[in-house]
Structures are given as structure tokens and as C-alpha cells.
Write a protein that binds this DNA or RNA. Structure first.
Lengths: 209, 209
DNA sequence: GTCTATATCATGATAGAC
DNA sequence: GTCTATCATGATATAGAC
């Protein structure tokens, strides 16, 4: 129906996403967004009243994206190790597809976290559920005892940080060899899964019970 | 000698560090820096010709700080596990003292990595040395075999990311309970050391050989 | 070295024709 | 809805007095 009407709006959103993600809120220029969208500045203000509004639209879009459907995986009835593996696969897959999102999120959250607050509240995302599931698995003796928060932090850190710090990796670790960097990212999921399993699983030789 | 002469310059640098670290290059205002330093804008340009120059001064200062003397630890003649533990302690100690540095570094590196390039080259920092040492420890059977690059990435990720993503942790994990957050950071070094040892050390019951 | 005043310029935003 | 032209603001940077 309205798939025809909003071609301009769609072009604006795509251009804005592009510019905001690479330059950030402060660094982005309305002129550049207009150019990339093939229109002029006035039209930007016609569709989105201000730069602030346009940014919020993009930011919401991205944040929703960054919290993938972890809850579904967590709530499933599989053993904890299987859940953790699925979450790592889901995260890394997402990050390989959209490698610039972590940098953007962290940049903007350090600037003004209020946007995140609204969205997390709106989505009713409750990390306590995750911690409880981990605690349960520990009580059942599936994995070693450690702080569920720290375990969660460890896993997410290993997944996200290498993408957020892409320029450092690229230059310091790989001397700007982009192919080597891509290979590294592709290996990441497997490496993290193995690392976490080594660290926390108790009966490694008895996984089939 | 010139410890008296440069009090104004010192005040400027401190104010600039403050503003740049919290607001970033684009978000920082020369007016605010001048106010915080107790002088006026013109004087900023007298000491540092432009905003760009002033920023570079601060950025260099911070970057040097962020690469602590890891090389010394790596080169020492201790077992690999001991080295890793020392590095984790050094890193976390630094980050607890200066928790806003990671966010700043990542923000600016995603904007323009050229500053890093110059400094890394200047310092002659060579990560290959680290990878070689790890490889050697693997060949000697001290730790399991895995990619040295991935192992390094895992450790640094777990150290740095929770600080870089401070606003997310603070709100999502701790509902803005600052005390709980500080406690979490204080526990971090111990947790990471244990986690890494569990993941990679081969003869855990035989560490004294 | 430090100040006031001002030049210069870029940006977000709006008015108004079509 | 889309454009051109313009405004208003705020920023970096400089001139020049003291």
C-alpha cells in the first residue's frame, strides 16, 4: 500500500543511518545526509522536524537491532551449554553482518544514555532472567560456580569488543590486512565457544547425558 | 625550573583532557575548556594554535597511557600463566583509576584512526612479540593450543569492554546502582584470571613444576 | 601573556514559491 | 512534496590594546 509513498522517507533513513553510524550524532552533517539521499536539506526538515528527531529514529532502529532475541534462546529447554553456544552464534552472526553498530552504540551511549533507558524499559528486557538461568545450571552442577553477571560480561565482551575496537585490531594486530581481519572475525564464534566451554563446563567427557 | 612558568598551560591541558574525554573531539567546545581552565578562548589559541592541535596533544597523552608497559612483563622470564595474571592486574588497575579512557579511545579511533597509527609506529610497539611468547608456551605444553591472536583478543576484551560499555552495564545490569557497579569492577581482575586459567592451563594440579 | 572585540565561516532551521 | 534562498546561531580563529 504505502510502499510507494515512502520512497523518499526510506532514502532519507538509509542515508541517515549511513552517516550517523560512521560519524556519530555530533559529527554527522545534515548536508551530507541530504546529498547521500539525493535531496536537499529542507526536505529533511519536512520529513523529520530536526536533526535530533532524525537521530532518534535511527538510534531506536539500531538499538532494537542490537538486542537480538536472546530471551527466546534463554527460555528454551535445552542444556545451558547449548544455549550459550546458540547465543554466541547469534551475536557473532549479527556483528559480522553489521560490524559498525557496536562502535556507534558505544559512542552514543557515552554521550547520552537516555535513549537506551527508554528503549530497554519499553522492551521490558530483564537480564535477571538470564542470571537466574545461569544460576540454576550451576546448582544442577552443569557448569562451575561463578558470578552469573561476570560470566555474562565475559561472553558478551569477547563477542562484541573485537568489533567495537575494529580499527585497533585492524592496525595493531593485522597491519591493515583486511582479509586476515575478516578471517579472524569468521573464526571468532568457534573460538569463543570453545574457550567458554573449557572455562566453565564440568564434565566435558560426558556431554551426552 | 619551568615548573612555575607553565601553570597556565597545565591548567589548559587538564581542562582540555576533562572536556575532550567526556565530550569527544566533535562535542567539545573551546568555550567550555576555557571556562574550566579559568581563562578565555583567545588564550587557548595563543598556547595551542587550533582546536585540532590541542586535541592531538591530549590524544597522544591518553594513548601513551593506554598502552602500559606490557612489553616488560612479556619479556620477563616467568611462566606464561604468571605473565598473563600480571597483565590482567596491570590493565584492570589502570582502568579502575581511569574508567573513561576506553570510551574516549574507541570513540576517537572510530572517527579517525590516523592518530593511533603515528603513535604506535613511534613507540615501535610490536604485538608479534606477544604472540611469539604465547606460541612458545603452547609448544612447551604449558597451555592448550589455540590461536595466540584470539587468546590475546579474549583477554583484552574481557578487561576493557566492561569499562568501555560502562553506561550499558550500569543501567542494564545494575539498574544504576553505582556501588554494585564499583564492586563488580573491583572483582573483575580475579574473575578474569580464574576464567582464563580454567580455559587454557593444562596441568592445573601441577602448577609448581 | 592576557584580555576585549570582532572577523569569518559552517550549520541547523525556516519562509515561501511552485 | 520539493525546491531556492535566507536567517539565526554558535563555533573557531584572529586583531589589537594593555
Amino acid at each position: 500500500m504505502e510502499t510507494k509513498k515512502d520512497t523518499t522517507e526510506a532514502k532519507i533513513l538509509e542515508a541517515a543511518r549511513n552517516v550517523f553510524v560512521t560519524k556519530g550524532m555530533e559529527g554527522a552533517r545534515m548536508q551530507e545526509i541530504a546529498d547521500k539521499a539525493g535531496i536537499n536539506k529542507a526536505l529533511l526538515h519536512y520529513y523529520f522536524r530536526s536533526k535530533e528527531r532524525l537521530f532518534e529514529a535511527i538510534f531506536s532502529e539500531i538499538i532494537k537491532f542490537a538486542f537480538p532475541e536472546i530471551t527466546r534462546i534463554v527460555r528454551s529447554d535445552e542444556p545451558i551449554v547449548s544455549k550459550i553456544e546458540q547465543i554466541i552464534d547469534a551475536y557473532i552472526g549479527l556483528l559480522i553482518k553489521h560490524p559498525f553498530i557496536p562502535g556507534f552504540i558505544m559512542k552514543e551511549l557515552n554521550r547520552d544514555p537516555s535513549g537506551l533507558f527508554k528503549l530497554v524499559v519499553k522492551f521490558g528486557l530483564n537480564p535477571q532472567v538470564i542470571f537466574d538461568h545461569i544460576q540454576l545450571a550451576m546448582d544442577r552442577g552443569e557448569i562451575i560456580r561463578m558470578s552469573p553477571r561476570h560470566l555474562t560480561a565475559n561472553i558478551i565482551s569477547m563477542c562484541v569488543f573485537p568489533f567495537a575496537a575494529r580499527p585497533i585490531l585492524s592496525f595493531v594486530m593485522f597491519k591493515d590486512d583486511q582479509n586476515a581481519l575478516e578471517t579472524f572475525y569468521a573464526e571468532r564464534a568457534g573460538v569463543i565457544k570453545q574457550f567458554v566451554i573449557n572455562a566453565i563446563v564440568i564434565n566435558k567427557q560426558d556431554e551426552n547425558n
